[in-house]
Measured scan of single mutants.
Amino acid sequence: VEVSPDIYQQVRDELKRASVSQAVFARVAFNRTQGLLSEILRKEEDPRTASQSLLVNLRAMQNFLNLPEVERDRIYQ
């Protein structure tokens, strides 16, 4: 799965849209901590040159964001 270069903005938009914390998003989207998500968003590494471990996390976030909005909102509950 190709990771979109605007994945970082997509995540920020989703945090605002759903009014969820980084901690909640990190847990449900890719089963990691708020600290890691914060670092990923701060660095904004180009997905095309990202490490394998970062790509795994970015893909998981993208797959989560590809779910229908209704389903994502249900998962946040």
Score class of each variant (00 low, 15 high):
50 A>P: 04
10 Q>W: 06
33 T>P: 07
43 K>W: 06
2 E>S: 11
32 R>D: 14
75 I>N: 04
50 A>G: 09
67 L>P: 00
26 A>M: 03
38 S>R: 13
32 R>A: 13
70 V>W: 08
6 D>Y: 07
66 N>Y: 08
10 Q>D: 07
19 S>F: 11
13 D>K: 15
29 A>V: 12
68 P>G: 09
22 Q>C: 05
28 V>R: 03
27 R>V: 07
39 E>F: 13
62 Q>I: 05
15 L>N: 00
63 N>A: 13
9 Q>A: 08
37 L>E: 01
76 Y>F: 05
44 E>F: 01
39 E>M: 05
58 L>S: 01
40 I>T: 04
40 I>M: 15
33 T>Y: 07
69 E>R: 07
2 E>V: 15
21 S>K: 05
39 E>A: 12
37 L>F: 06
72 R>M: 00
34 Q>W: 06
63 N>L: 07
16 K>W: 04
26 A>R: 02
25 F>G: 01
16 K>R: 07
23 A>D: 15
27 R>E: 14
2 E>Y: 14
18 A>S: 15
30 F>M: 09
70 V>M: 08
27 R>G: 06
43 K>Q: 10
71 E>R: 07
47 P>N: 02
61 M>T: 06
10 Q>R: 14
77 Q>I: 12
60 A>G: 10
56 V>P: 09
27 R>A: 10
70 V>H: 14
6 D>L: 08
62 Q>W: 05
16 K>G: 09
52 Q>H: 10
25 F>P: 01
32 R>H: 14
18 A>P: 07
52 Q>C: 07
26 A>D: 08
36 L>M: 14
64 F>L: 05
59 R>K: 07
41 L>K: 00
26 A>G: 06
48 R>Y: 08
4 S>L: 08
51 S>I: 03
21 S>D: 08
47 P>L: 10
34 Q>L: 07
8 Y>N: 01
77 Q>F: 11
61 M>L: 12
22 Q>F: 10
31 N>S: 10
68 P>F: 03
29 A>H: 01
26 A>V: 03
39 E>H: 06
9 Q>E: 15
35 G>I: 11
46 D>Q: 06
18 A>Q: 06
12 R>W: 15
27 R>M: 11
3 V>T: 06
37 L>R: 01
42 R>G: 10
47 P>G: 02
64 F>K: 02
31 N>I: 06
4 S>K: 07
67 L>F: 06
17 R>P: 01
23 A>K: 15
48 R>D: 11
26 A>P: 00
66 N>K: 08
32 R>E: 12
41 L>A: 02
65 L>S: 03
53 S>C: 11
55 L>P: 03
59 R>I: 07
5 P>Y: 05
20 V>P: 00
14 E>S: 01
14 E>Y: 03
41 L>D: 02
51 S>C: 10
46 D>N: 10
34 Q>H: 09
50 A>T: 07
12 R>L: 03
23 A>N: 14
74 R>H: 07
43 K>V: 10
16 K>H: 13
3 V>P: 07
36 L>Q: 11
57 N>R: 07
19 S>M: 13
63 N>S: 11
47 P>Y: 03
8 Y>D: 02
43 K>M: 12
36 L>G: 04
51 S>H: 12
9 Q>W: 09
70 V>S: 12
46 D>A: 10
64 F>P: 01
63 N>Y: 10
77 Q>V: 07
54 L>K: 07
51 S>E: 10
43 K>L: 09
16 K>S: 08
2 E>F: 15
29 A>M: 06
24 V>F: 07
40 I>E: 02
43 K>D: 14
12 R>V: 06
47 P>T: 13
10 Q>M: 14
68 P>I: 05
13 D>R: 15
32 R>N: 10
60 A>N: 05
53 S>K: 13
13 D>M: 14
40 I>L: 10
45 E>V: 13
17 R>H: 00
23 A>V: 11
52 Q>S: 11
30 F>S: 04
38 S>G: 13
14 E>Q: 02
41 L>M: 15
5 P>W: 06
42 R>S: 11
15 L>M: 14
51 S>G: 11
62 Q>E: 08
30 F>I: 06
76 Y>C: 02
66 N>M: 08
62 Q>K: 13
46 D>L: 05
11 V>Y: 00
42 R>K: 11
77 Q>C: 03
3 V>W: 03
18 A>K: 15
59 R>S: 11
14 E>A: 01
65 L>A: 01
19 S>G: 13
1 V>A: 08
28 V>E: 05
27 R>S: 12
65 L>D: 00
22 Q>E: 13
44 E>H: 06
25 F>A: 02
38 S>T: 14
74 R>C: 15
39 E>G: 08
5 P>D: 07
55 L>C: 07
73 D>H: 04
56 V>W: 09
44 E>N: 11
13 D>P: 02
30 F>K: 00
29 A>D: 02
56 V>D: 10
27 R>F: 05
65 L>H: 01
65 L>R: 00
60 A>E: 14
54 L>T: 14
14 E>T: 01
52 Q>L: 09
13 D>F: 09
59 R>F: 05
41 L>E: 02
22 Q>I: 05
51 S>Y: 04
72 R>G: 00
69 E>T: 11
59 R>W: 05
70 V>I: 11
76 Y>H: 02
3 V>E: 05
45 E>F: 05
11 V>C: 03
48 R>N: 14
36 L>F: 04
42 R>M: 12
2 E>M: 15
43 K>I: 07
16 K>M: 08
29 A>N: 00
53 S>L: 08
54 L>R: 12
40 I>W: 02
55 L>T: 09
35 G>A: 11
41 L>Y: 03
11 V>M: 05
34 Q>M: 07
61 M>K: 01
35 G>Y: 11
23 A>P: 07
39 E>W: 05
24 V>D: 15
36 L>K: 15
4 S>V: 08
8 Y>I: 02
27 R>I: 05
39 E>L: 10
76 Y>G: 01
68 P>R: 11
53 S>T: 13
44 E>W: 01
9 Q>D: 15
58 L>C: 02
8 Y>L: 04
11 V>I: 14
13 D>Y: 14
75 I>L: 12
77 Q>E: 14
54 L>G: 05
5 P>E: 14
75 I>R: 12
1 V>Y: 02
21 S>R: 04
22 Q>W: 11
71 E>L: 05
73 D>W: 03
29 A>R: 00
55 L>A: 09
50 A>K: 01
23 A>W: 10
